[in-house]
């Protein structure tokens, strides 16, 4: 009861209960996300097993260097996000905002690079269903590879954009001083989400860019 009431929603008894509820809520949500991407990865696995040669050839049309740089960017953004969570708990308003901004920046560069890659594929006629062309006898199966490539990276990028939106709102709130403890929990929750989206990419990078890399 001596706690600052404006931080506490009325359905909760105390801030600890509220914090735990929000945290579990995000974990449950992430469990649904695992299945969401899991369904795509199931389809990916089936076709990769069926059409390995074609998928290996198609995968070589992606730039490993480009993908690696994107991976590094995203891992760095997870570091700045972790620092944001740290500073939010300590109550450092400016450092919190700075870390959030850095995270947004790294995430935005990632999404920008993804768009550049998609644009390259478009120019090379590698977009399924839109005049897809692929040299060699496996064009049909390669188109399936690119279908999954676009679906997986597309849904991932969508999650990145949502994440950037959330972080932008949090940055605004941080600058207004409205995320000072005990109201820092949203940063924790957004952090969970951001790390999850990061982990999805850690799966997508080898699945899509590194098929049969050792035979290069």
């Amino acid at each position: 009861m001596p706690e600052p009431t404006h931080a506490l929603a009325e359905q909760f008894d105390d801030l600890e209960q509220q914090r735990q509820a929000s945290t579990i809520g995000m974990w449950v949500f992430l469990a649904t996300e695992v299945i969401f991407f899991g369904a795509l990865i199931t389809g990916y696995t089936e076709y990769r097993a069926s059409y390995y040669q074609a998928w290996a050839a198609a995968s070589k049309h992606l730039s490993v260097v480009f993908g690696a740089i994107m991976t590094i960017l995203l891992l760095s953004s997870s570091f700045t996000m972790a620092m944001a969570v740290h500073f939010a708990r300590l109550g450092g308003r400016k450092r919190l905002a700075l870390c959030l901004l850095l995270t947004i920046l790294l995430g935005a560069v990632f999404v920008g690079m993804k768009f550049m890659e998609w644009h390259d594929h478009y120019q090379r006629h590698e977009v399924p269903g839109m005049g897809f062309e692929f040299p060699g006898p496996n064009a049909r199966e390669a188109q399936l590879f690119f279908s999954f490539y676009f679906a997986m990276t597309g849904f991932h990028a969508l999650h990145m954009i949502v994440g950037i939106g959330i972080l932008a709102v949090l940055t605004g709130l941080a600058l207004l001083g409205r995320l000072a403890p005990p109201r820092h929990v949203p940063v924790d929750i957004a952090g969970l989400y951001w790390h999850f989206v990061d982990i999805v990419w850690i799966f997508l990078f080898p699945l899509l860019y590194l098929v049969d890399l050792h035979h290069k």
Partner: peptide, 11 residues
């Protein structure tokens, strides 16, 4: 888009 994910003619 007719990308063939569930279409046997397209693999």
């Amino acid at each position: 888009l007719h990308i063939g994910i569930f279409d046997p003619r397209l693999g």
